[in-house]
Nucleic acid binder design. Structure first.
Lengths: 265, 265
DNA sequence: CAGTGGTCTAGACCACTAT
DNA sequence: TAGTGGTCTAGACCACTGA
């Protein structure tokens, strides 16, 4: 019997199952680690595991690789594989939902185009985005609402091409990267900066809040494959309405992560 | 000769090299994709690649798996493997540096303990952290500075155990998760919330800024393996000094990501 | 020295896609 | 039906660790 440090292991792998063997093993090892193993404890060797379950060592390695990827274990050449200490001090926030959350949920999301026009990039735009001075850009401002409540204020510049004129509906509904891709030269990378800012009078008015309301500022620059800037935008998210949650470590069943914008306090 | 859509491929794999074959192939494929392939284009089949380079299909699969992991390509059963469209609209910010950056850089980082005492968890603490009302907690407040400039204001509660008394130096210098681990019941997961807040008078005074300064608020709760809360803390980062940068898409050489706290604007 | 994880091979069978 | 990616095997050799 294979010993997982504290107790005999009696799980079995069903080779006829539709779920892959390596994945069954991942789940077995996860459970074994969660129930009674401590950081630093050694897992059985790959050879032991493969013999015990009657599977190939390559399959065992695939399962372990997945646990390494998840940060649950680490392997050391010539020594063994060990339970890792959960990494809890690094903070990773995913802001996918910043946009998506407002869109779903039959909350009547809607947007208002405040201004559109063609501008030539000036010193300021160049400094922020490295778009060369004089470049013709499509400039527009949008307020995004849920119901009658404004939540996001966006200011964007897109390097202009006559190829395809953009319709108002596109400006409001396309994703940022799709808009930037408009001229056929697709963006392949983007640089983002997250800051906190106090809204100025103008922004506060557009968002219908008092001018001293704090806000998340997300600034993005998109580049094509040759590192030419294609677009630059700043989105302001009302700080009184948005918070970002994140989770780290060995997730239990109740894993969650996302953005709320309907919060107390 | 293997055709990578646009041109003949003349790279070669050195099987005697110290760098693994699969990794050489990853780099070759990356270069091939960056130079002239577009999202949606098909890669050569795994079989074609293995024959062309004279390597096993399993090794080819390992290289491709790495590209899938990186989000550069995607595979479809029965169809083939294709170049992916870079995901640029989801925002992922890593705040590892929030702490680390201030520590390095011979910038004379230093911390000041404002208060320590034992408290019993009240209604408010319970609501924020789910630490049961009445639980004895170590409560302390710290200001972290670089040189003479205060940057971070922290308020923390740790579920108290008599096991190991904590020294002042530990409170100031240990990582948050190490402090929480003090009582021998290690934290295995944490929940975090990022918000923007206006500093109140008390916080602003501690950070030596005007009270209407906005700040990042990072709130963390640590749990043990049985989902018992072990600690709860709020860190306030001066919004005028911190910004968080992030990068997405097909990284060129000049990949960068992190936290700056010495910024213009 | 024996044991470990890291790499790699040359097959095999499968489910799926397209024709 | 032919071709694709997904899984799995039973070996092999290597570099590294520890006694």
């Amino acid at each position: 019997m294979l010993k997982f440090k504290n107790k005999n292991h009696n799980k079995i792998i069903d080779k006829t199952s539709f779920t892959p063997v390596y994945y069954q093993l991942v789940k077995i090892l996860e459970k074994e680690i969660l129930n009674g193993m401590m950081p630093g404890d050694a897992l059985p060797t790959e050879h032991e595991i493969s013999v015990h379950f009657g599977i190939s060592r390559m399959t065992v390695r695939r399962a372990i690789a997945q646990l390494v990827q998840a940060g649950m274990v680490y392997a050391e050449k010539g020594r063994g594989t060990f339970v890792a200490k959960p990494q809890l001090d690094n903070l990773i926030f995913e802001l996918d939902g910043f946009y998506a959350e407002t869109q779903q949920k039959d909350m009547n999301p809607n947007s208002k185009l405040l201004e559109v026009r063609i501008v030539k990039a000036d010193e300021n735009i160049f400094k922020k985005s490295s778009i060369p001075i004089g470049t013709r850009c499509l400039y527009f401002r949008v307020v995004r609402k849920v119901g009658s409540e404004p939540l996001i204020y966006e200011t964007k510049h897109i390097v202009y091409s006559k190829k395809k004129p953009l319709l108002e509906a596109e400006l409001l509904n396309s994703t940022w990267s799709n808009l930037v891709a408009n001229n056929g030269n697709p963006p392949v990378r983007s640089q983002k900066t997250l800051q906190v800012k106090l809204l100025n009078d103008h922004e506060a008015k557009a968002l219908q809040v008092s001018p001293i309301t704090p806000a998340f500022s997300v600034e993005q620059v998109f580049y094509d494959i040759d590192n030419n800037p294609l677009g630059w935008g700043i989105s302001l998210y009302r700080g009184d309405r948005y918070k970002i949650t994140s989770h780290a470590g060995w997730a239990g069943e109740n894993y969650s992560k996302g953005v709320d914008f309907e919060n107390e306090q």
